[in-house]
């Protein structure tokens, strides 16, 4: 079992015992199992996958830092963390489009990097949100006959 803590500046999002967690880091996605080596890694915007009781939970995180301590403790300090259920797909899509437009308008390298990071964040949110609504399935009224 992993002792897992996920905190954002505003709140403690999750504190639980889990089986494993996949973390999007700057060096690629890593999966942490119990007895992992002590590690500190920078986060990338992406999806955080928590596995417990045979189920997978998806969260969208933007930047931050992840820390693995001895004794199977994992702590994640994220700038933001949202569960799939909390993300409104339509609004996330609109935000992504706005970010894409802003990136095209970016004048210097710094602006471009900022907007690229924003875009990556929105893409990650969308990806997580779509986990709940798979694209091949259209939610709607069920035919009666």
């Amino acid at each position: 079992m992993l002792k897992f803590k996920l905190a954002t500046p505003e709140r403690l999002v999750l504190e639980a015992e889990i089986d494993s967690v996949s973390i999007p880091t700057q060096m690629g996605q890593i999966t942490v199992l119990p007895n992992h080596l002590p590690l500190v890694a920078n986060l990338e915007p992406g999806e955080l996958i928590i596995r417990r009781n045979g189920r997978e939970e998806y969260l969208a995180v933007s930047g931050g830092v992840a820390q693995v301590n001895p004794g199977s403790q994992v702590m994640i300090l994220a700038d933001s963390a949202e569960r799939a259920e909390e993300i409104d797909v339509a609004r996330a899509e609109a935000a992504r489009e706005r970010a894409a437009v802003l990136q095209l308008e970016a004048k210097d390298d710094r602006k471009f990097a900022d907007t690229a990071a924003q875009l990556a964040k929105h893409l990650a949110r969308l990806r997580v949100a779509r986990r709940r609504h798979p694209p091949h399935h259209t939610p709607g009224p069920v035919p009666e006959d």
Binding site: T25, Q26, P38, L39, V40, A41, N42, V65
Partner: peptide
């Protein structure tokens, strides 16, 4: 705390 591995580097973290 015990020594951690820093990814990418301590400086970047």
């Amino acid at each position: 705390e015990p020594e951690h591995i820093f990814e990418p580097t301590p400086q970047l973290v």
